[in-house]
Design a protein around this nucleic acid. Structure first.
Lengths: 331, 331
DNA sequence: CAGCGTTCTGTAAACGTTTTCATGAGATTT
DNA sequence: AAATCTCATGAAAACGTTTACAGAACGCTG
């Protein structure tokens, strides 16, 4: 025989099922005496309300489903941590899932969450098309993080990419760099905006943007750096799509016998824990990671409470200067 | 009005609810013609089976709940990735949750998973007491990773700590180190076994183990290194509880103006991605992370299928030599 | 003792599926 | 035309809760 049910608890405690239900839902209209008895019996029996049944009856799950682009990326786990805390404060649970960097994986994960009828959906930089995302968003209150799009009937939370790229290019050009390359992140997952912001910031200064299509991971940086260093007019600085990619860039440069920052300056994005490690000390663009998670939950909570107007928030990043960037070598 | 139900689909497709149910469960006893029509209508309506209702009716969730000690630790995310793939292959979903390095957080997360009646429970190095874990394990097929205990009615998957410590101490002593310190990991979460294995390996060689209580994160390494370097008889090598902690150790040493490995050798554990970064190049003990996840799911699947004997697997780790360890300086 | 408020009971419907079963309708084979 | 086979139907019960409601038991107050 399997798990005990409410009826089992009621029978053993000598009360009605309705009373047990009230106790489980922390209703105040239960005598202290009976509440204690029911809880005692419940823990004795190892009873635990069946959430599937509860969800079915109430139509509410008190759960937010989060789909993270890449659980290996500290940026997303920090966002998730912020979200998890905020959700707990709001009496909600956060259910994590990841697409493991594959778009089909993301689709599956979101389908699962929608099937469970989570009260809300938190999409962190999905790799899916705008159309697909918009379709999913019709099924539950949704907030999307880190992807620009013509979002309607959902909320979004974005980094001010223009400002970020401006910070990067400003910093590097002030150090005398002119040949600056960008290893872009995965385009659907927010890399597009960053790439074009970089291109604009460069052109504005009359500089030619060098761009390599990549992804938001170590491998892309590693591969990208190789291609860039094979150019006969090597860039003197590399702006990686994010910190992970920057790490890949640094690894490859190291293997090529090039020093950072003496030979090549490298700059990342996100200011994840990795960037702060002394041995790495990566100059990067800081984003308020946990805050992003908190804010996302706040937006969802408002939605769930009934807000219907869309909100599209934009956060300003800032530069964190460490030791991976330096004045261009005067060759 | 909310989400469409099976009846809505049935009505619109002009078939019975039973038929829609058959289609949704991919039954083969449905004509191609009707299957297509039902699927068309379903997607038209945006219909998606309600898993709560389905779970209730079948008593199965086809879901494994995973509780990760620390989602920021690449070791656990790699385990999760392996588990996720294996689960998908077995027709199961993996639901992630984390206790965010707090034991109450872990309790909550597990309670939630049990409430959802997941078919199995995957506990990755929980920080909870043996008693608490054993209680949870009575409620669902459970496999625990990385914690030694007197487990009964559950499976476990462990690293051969004696072998690992032996590798560490052997490597360091062969390099001439005698004053070797260990910044231990969080004890309930598996740090205890590693610590005592280290102590044994040292004593066996007539060496005094220097041990600092820590945790499996960067901060612990950072703090631990400070304490160790304040000793008047400084250790010449530090064995960190895991890679994260080793990073913390290296950061602090760097700040203290000490070079790795010239002044102090550092060795980590887990061989996470971080260890392989060229700029870090951490000597560490390798564990087959994804395989661990895969194996864990396999154990759970067997359990769910009815196996009742306990299985306790032990995996042998191996040393990966990089550049954070070197012969002791002849002062 | 009447009246009142609080706490509890028992019953029943509802949530959206799955599952079973007896029956029926069509198509295909003999 | 009869027999067989495949596919579909409709009804009903079940899963474990929540929720609503009418009424009962109880202890207090006046």
């Amino acid at each position: 025989m399997s798990q005990p049910t409410m009826d089992d608890v009621a029978a053993k405690a000598g009360v009605s099922r309705a009373l047990v239900s009230l106790v489980m839902r922390q209703s105040p209209r239960v005598s202290e005496h009976n509440r204690a008895k029911v809880l005692a019996v419940a823990s004795d029996l190892g009873y635990r309300p069946n959430t599937a049944a509860r969800n079915l009856a109430t139509g509410q799950t008190h759960t937010i489903g989060a789909m993270l682009n890449d659980i290996h990326n500290p940026f997303f786990t920090a966002v998730a941590e912020g979200a998890s805390k905020a959700a707990a404060d709001a009496g909600l649970h956060l259910l994590l899932s990841s697409g493991w960097q594959r778009s089909e994986g993301e689709t599956e994960a979101i389908e699962m969450l929608l099937g469970m009828r989570t009260d809300g959906l938190l999409l962190a930089s999905p790799r899916l098309s705008h159309v697909t995302i918009s379709e999913f968003a019709t099924q539950a209150p949704t907030v999307i993080i880190g992807v620009w799009g013509p979002w309607t009937d959902m909320d979004s939370l974005n980094n001010d990419e223009d400002h970020g790229a401006e910070l990067v290019v400003d910093h590097l050009t002030k150090l005398g760099h002119k040949r600056i390359a960008h290893v872009s992140g995965n385009l659907p997952a927010g890399g597009e905006q960053r790439r074009s912001a970089f291109a604009n910031a460069m052109m504005k200064r009359g500089l030619a943007p060098i761009i390599i299509d990549g992804d938001f991971n170590e491998k892309a940086g590693y591969d990208g750096a190789a291609s860039l260093m094979a150019l006969h007019d090597r860039p003197t600085a590399i702006f990686a799509g994010n910190d992970l990619s920057a790490i890949g860039v640094m690894s490859r440069l190291h293997e090529l016998g090039l020093r950072v920052p003496e030979d090549v300056s490298v700059i990342g994005y996100d200011d994840t824990n990795i960037a702060g490690i002394s041995a790495i000390s990566l100059t990067t663009i800081h984003q308020p990671r946990e805050e992003i998670g908190t804010l996302a939950i706040q937006l969802l909570v408002e939605r769930i409470a009934g807000r219907t107007e869309d909100r599209h928030e934009e956060l300003k990043p800032r530069l964190v200067k460490r030791s991976s960037t330096a004045p261009v070598a005067t060759a």
